[in-house]
Write a protein that binds this DNA or RNA. Structure first.
Lengths: 240, 240
DNA sequence: TAAAATAAGTGGTATAGACAACTAGATAAT
DNA sequence: ATTATCTAGTTGTCTATACCACTTATTTTA
């Protein structure tokens, strides 16, 4: 597997070898792979070189590190279609998963100039800031921060926020969401995001910012989401 | 900037410090930062520790490494709206940039079972495989591989492929594209992709697979793209 | 003058070792 | 029986060093 005289870097050879073992099923998802020291002894290479190979595979989403325990083969990605404009809960149910929510923060803040402009309100007016971890089948799928003008949803409490805000707005308040703008961007997880999503810092994530609008054209909310790229793909159908 | 007795890792302190210098503008986009050896001497730490800090910032898209030259502050991202179903060329022009193309490969291959199914043709039937680097203002923006059944576009030559395939199909062949399905996913650049896109291996990229359909519902093409996350955001407007 | 060789500086790869932080199970003390 | 401690194994951080590959400018050579 490793040829020290190859022009290819050793870490790269090991990286490709491990990847192949995963893709061929010789290493199963969830299974613990040999420890860094074992790889190093096995091929008589330095542990730092092993770490470089494993680092890359962790960044690629093939492996997951767990300090004090070991390194494990990651579980597979999810891919299901998503039609039209849906809430996270609708999205997850359409994918055959059970949506869940962990509330991280729920409070009001004064609107920044940027948010005021995007939400069509005055600068400094109160908006709800709702930070939540969105779960799918109990596992973290995304980190979501929503900003909603307080004046639009007077009855919002921590209770309502445990489920779908969209459903609350449509069912309880009688407001209808008409359209949204979404910006998608690939990035890597920062430290805090990684901890909350239970992924490694530097793992790929899909950043989505959604601006939603009511039938009147009035902006309803801004939602910034950080999705785990190892569990989430975004699918859309478009007409010309 | 660095406190060796802090509980925070040294590489993390340096990483945050450099990031702050970038965000405060003390390091300007495109500017070369001190070399790894200089950081190491400056704070009396190991070069490997400096590398770990810089690695993270490269992964986060703050810095760009250039072997033999130095490490540079990355330039800012592009963000422009994209409405409806557009070609790469249309997309780039809408963003105020000049689209370009470098043809990497143009040949026919027999359809794999998966491609045959997605394109609605028989397994083993010929399809064009067109690999191109898509440029914006002369700089690599995406790596694109398109698969089109040969039977649908008989006149396709290397000449036509230098520009927009969409425009060729609509203008020359009189076919109309009606809809498409797109799957977006965050990932990191592999070695070959990184070289072609002139980014670092492991840099974040946005993977997009587009399946296009004609008015008849007949599948027209499959396009797999790898976009540089540091230069490209995907924007979409949706109606409910 | 032009081409080739050299040197200095950069990031890229690799080594061998050390200690810290964390996990889980075994063992000892209460 | 329960609790506390120890221990072995894991990944995380860090050091000091070495050589390689590439870039650029300078110097030497033809």
């Amino acid at each position: 597997m490793i040829n020290k005289h190859s022009p290819l870097p050793i870490y790269y050879q090991l990286e490709q070898g491990i990847k192949e073992m995963i893709e061929k099923g010789q290493l199963q998802p969830g299974e613990m792979i040999p420890s860094e020291r074992e790889w190093a002894e096995m091929y008589e290479i330095s542990r730092m070189t092993v770490r470089q190979a494993i680092n890359n595979l962790v960044n690629d989403g093939y492996l997951v590190r767990k300090r004090g325990k070991g390194t494990f083969v990651a579980t597979k990605k999810i891919e299901q279609p998503l039609k039209g404009l849906t809430s996270f809960s609708e999205d997850m149910r359409a994918r055959g998963m059970v949506p869940g929510t962990t509330l991280l923060a729920f409070h009001t803040i004064p609107a920044s100039p940027s948010f005021a402009s995007q939400l069509g309100i005055g600068e400094g007016e109160d908006v709800y800031e709702i930070r939540r971890i969105r779960l799918a089948d109990g596992l973290p799928m995304a980190l979501e921060t929503a900003y909603v003008p307080c004046s639009l949803v007077p009855g919002l409490t921590e209770q309502n926020v445990s489920g779908s805000i969209y459903e609350f707005i449509e069912n309880k308040l009688g407001l209808t969401i008409r359209s949204a703008t979404q910006v998608l961007e690939a990035s890597v997880a920062r430290k805090l995001e990684a901890e909350l999503l239970q992924i490694k810092e530097g793992a790929p994530v899909l950043l989505i910012q959604r601006n939603s609008y009511l039938q009147t054209g009035q902006p309803l909310e801004i939602v910034k989401s950080v999705y785990r790229a190892d569990r989430y793909k975004f699918m859309i159908e478009m007409e010309r």
